[in-house]
Amino acid sequence: MAPTPGRGAAAPPPYPVIQPMLAALGPLPPEHEQASWAFEGKWDGARCIVNTPGDGTLRLVTRAGNDTTASYPELGPLGEQLRGRPAVLDGEVVVLDSAGRPDFGLLQRRMGVLNPRRTARLAMEFPVQLVLFDVMYLGGSLLDAPYRERRAVLAGLGLAGPNWSVPGYVTGHGRQAWEAALQGGLEGVLAKRLSSPYLPGVRSPDWVKTKYQETLDVVIGGWLEGRGALGGLPGSVVVGVAEPAGLRFVGAVGSGLSDHERRELAHYLSVIPLDRSPFVNPVDLAGVHWAEPRLVAEIAFSGWTSAGRIRHPVWHRLRPDLTRLG
C-alpha cells in the first residue's frame, strides 16, 4: 500500500539532488583558444550547493553531501530572494579578512557549528560570503545548457545581498584574469569552456583550475608515531588519493603540522582505527597505525615521483567540508 501524504516517507523536494561539477588541475588554456573560455576567480573557501523549493527556505549542502544550513544562518534570507522559483545553485562559502581577502582559517571557525546561539555570535564576528557562480535548476533542468547560458540565467535572477553575490567573469583574457585574481588574494583562476554543460560529480577537462600553488586534497588512511616529544602523536599521516579502483597510497606528510594540529589529528584518528590497510596498493612504510579513510586534508607539493609518490609534501590543513560524517 502506497504511503499517503503526511504518512510514511516524506515527499521528495521539488528540485533534483545535484552533485557539484569538478575542475581538473592544469595550466591556463593556450592563448589562441582563450576566446572559447570564461575565466573566474578561484576562491579559497568551501563548495556549497544551494537548494530551495521556492517557499522562502533554502538548504545548503557541502561537496561531501553534508547539510550545513544551520552553520550559516546569515545566508537564510537568500531563500526569500528566490521565493516562487525552485532552484539549485552552485557557489563557494568564504570568510573575508580585514583586507577583503578570503581566509580559510577564519572559515574553519564557522564549519560544523550547529548551536544556534553560537552560530548567531559567529555570524556577527566572522560573517560568511556566498559567491554564486552557476545555476543548474530553475523550475526545470539547466544541466544541458552551455555555461554562457547558465551564467546569463544566474545574472538575470538579480541575486544581491549583504552575504551573497554573483561575481562576473571575463572571456578570452586568461592572463589578465590570473593577475587580477592574485592581486585580489584569490587562489588562482577557474577556466570554464563557454559551451560546457554542467556534469554533476564529474571532474571535467572543460573546467580547469590553475592555482598559484600546486595543492592536492588527500585522504588520510593511517599515521606514523612521532619521536621524542611527539611520542603518542602523529609524526606524519599516511595519505592517498581516491581513484575508481580505490584509495591509492601516495606518501606520508609530516612537514607543516603544528603541535595543535597533531593533537587534533590524534583525537580524530583515535576514534576511527582500522585493523588493515585501506589502500589498494602496497604501503612501503613500517609501523603504520591504520585508520578509516574519512579525514580529508589539503597539502602542497612540488610534483610527482616516477613511482607515483608526492614530492616534498607540506601539510596545509584539514578539510572538514570534504570529510564524510557518520
Rank of each mutant, 00 (worst) to 15 (best):
R263Q: 14
G308R: 00
R294L: 15
G41E: 07
A99D: 15
S302P: 03
V128H: 10
S204V: 08
R85F: 10
P86N: 11
R150M: 06
L78Y: 00
E243T: 12
V253E: 02
P234V: 05
A229G: 15
P14A: 01
G251E: 12
G231C: 00
G161V: 12
P167D: 12
V241F: 04
V88G: 06
P102L: 03
Q108F: 01
G41L: 05
G56C: 05
Q213Y: 01
P102C: 04
E179G: 00
V131E: 04
A245P: 00
Y212D: 14
F301N: 01
P30L: 01
M111K: 04
L60Q: 08
R151M: 05
L265F: 09
I272R: 13
H32I: 02
F279Y: 14
P77F: 05
K192Q: 10
V239T: 11
W178Q: 05
F104H: 11
N51W: 11
H173K: 14
N115F: 00
M1G: 15
V94T: 10
G84V: 05
A180T: 11
R227W: 06
H32T: 08
P3C: 07
A155C: 00
P86K: 03
L138A: 14
P27C: 01
R7W: 11
A152M: 03
P13S: 01
T57K: 02
A160M: 04
G56F: 05
L132V: 09
V237C: 08
E261F: 01
L82Q: 03
W223F: 09
A291N: 15
L78I: 10
G161L: 12
W223Q: 02
P234I: 08
I49D: 07
K211Q: 14
L318S: 09
L78A: 05
E33S: 07
R101L: 06
Y15E: 06
F249P: 05
A307N: 12
A24K: 14
V241W: 08
E40D: 02
L114Q: 14
A191R: 03
R117C: 00
R309T: 12
L60Y: 01
L182N: 03
L285R: 12
Y72R: 01
